[in-house]
């Protein structure tokens, strides 16, 4: 999972200390969140390809890593409904 995120960040030119890159990072998070792209779904995408990814984001991404490169999914978000 982190390997894939690293690829995405690098592909988008994100670095920790640059304002423009911070904006890029925020845009990425917004895209992921608005489209309900949880970590699990990103991991699925990483394994299966990025056909489902929004075109605006997909055009900025490198090819997904090979399946054997994506091994760390323990940091996945747990998506659950805790209604009142």
């Amino acid at each position: 999972m982190k390997t894939m995120l690293a690829l995405i960040l690098v592909a988008m030119g994100v670095t920790p200390n640059e304002t423009t890159s911070q904006r890029a990072m925020c845009a990425f998070v917004e895209t992921v969140s608005a489209g309900q792209w949880t970590c699990q779904r990103l991991a699925v995408w990483a394994r299966k390809g990025h056909d489902e990814l929004p075109r605006s984001l997909a055009s900025k991404l490198p090819p997904p890593p090979a399946e054997d490169e994506v091994t760390d999914t323990d940091d996945s978000a747990e998506r659950i409904s805790n209604g009142f």
Partner: peptide
């Protein structure tokens, strides 16, 4: 490039959006 803080921020943002609190069934 140090990505660790970026990972944390991104994963935190995604985690927070993965937690739903609907009130549809409330009185």
């Amino acid at each position: 490039m140090d990505h660790s803080s970026l990972y944390e921020r991104i994963l935190k943002a995604v985690d927070e959006r993965a937690y739903f609190t609907p009130a549809d069934a409330v009185d």
